[in-house]
Design a protein around this nucleic acid. Sequence first.
DNA 1: GTGAAAAAGGGTGAAAACACCTACTTAAAG
DNA 2: CTTTAAGTAGGTGTTTTCACCCTTTTTCAC
Lengths: 217, 217
Amino acid sequence: MSKPVIVGLVDDHVLLRKGLASLLVDNGYPLVIQADNGKQFIDKLSGDEIPNIVLLDINMPVMDGYATAIWLKEHYPQMKILALSMYDDEHSIIRMLRNGAGGYILKDCEPAELKIAIEAILQKGYYHNELVSSKLIHTMQNADNGSARNGYPELSTKEVKFLQLICSEMTYKEISAVMKLSPRTIDGYRDALFEKLGIKSRVGLVMFAIRNHLINV
Amino acid sequence: MSKPVIVGLVDDHVLLRKGLASLLVDNGYPLVIQADNGKQFIDKLSGDEIPNIVLLDINMPVMDGYATAIWLKEHYPQMKILALSMYDDEHSIIRMLRNGAGGYILKDCEPAELKIAIEAILQKGYYHNELVSSKLIHTMQNADNGSARNGYPELSTKEVKFLQLICSEMTYKEISAVMKLSPRTIDGYRDALFEKLGIKSRVGLVMFAIRNHLINV
DNA sequence: GTGAAAAAGGGTGAAAACACCTACTTAAAG
DNA sequence: CTTTAAGTAGGTGTTTTCACCCTTTTTCAC
């Protein structure tokens, strides 16, 4: 054994986090730095106890897993990231991997797999299980015909904003006022999204936004 | 100390469950019976090690927390139930309490609260924290003017079915065909729901259905 | 600067969604 | 047996959504 491994653990569900911390301690990782969200975790990094690896939840208040991963890769590029999520959808997986995660495991996996994943990431820098591989392959196969690394076509900032506003009871006219754009332009956004995503109605766009976690329900 | 307490733990998120089990053991509850879902838990009850209290997750595959609570109250009425969920919405809370839960805590609560809750339920049979109390009061205050124990007005089976179909790209006409009713009747369903729920558009109904877990996203 | 591409803005008409009002049928409640 | 309430169904008209055509402005590479 060389230096002891320090594990970061970022999750807003306190019971899960403390329970997981207890598991980690039992499995030979006595040094666990916990945080409620990305922001709080970053604030704890000022000392000299810098984690070698961080288990990062995606859905958190204040600062979520996506943003945290980007920040960590920027400021602590040597720190390994293992994404930890409830969701097994392509979008979330691909996005976390793009943002610098070395692996992605589900919250309903076996503790044994967690241990294997941690060891793999510490040694090889990555851990790709069945789940991640299948999604990666699927994304790659669709990457040439327009789909990008998200599992669906690239969306602009304004399109995302539009998709979020669409999930309200506002009419397109009211949305155009909020976005300070002409109603016609909004019309164009909608038609472009219909075309890109193969959707035919506003309700379809709403469901797309929800399924891809573009809004918080 | 009298007889040792046996704790049941039903949750499909393996990491959370095993972590929580570890926490429970550390806190003086060495006897924990774990299960992935309600069905599996029921199957484990044949022996003579019957839990005094069960920590029951709501969202699980195969057999969820609602159904499990009802079954337990029917077959093991002496077993205490503590609902354990990620969601703090009125609907879920009220429904679990109606189904026999003695308490309801969130997955992001502190372990200390969990312990307090377990002790209270074992001794008094119930544990009502701030969260539960406020939702209970709100429900009671609205109970006279139409709102029922769900936190929103009672919905008929067909209305629920309608709300589920509304979350698709079908037009009302197509929905009427699926439900074998006149388009006018469907129109009436929509208007009645608008009125009852204070909603003004189809998108609003879609969001309502999702927020109240009437459909799986 | 020029030319291509992307973003924004526009018109018209059909279909869908929404508002409001009435009527019949059935089943429970008086 | 009548009254009420709930479920079903219809008529009419307005607003919103959607489809398909187009032009202007902005951006950016060359």
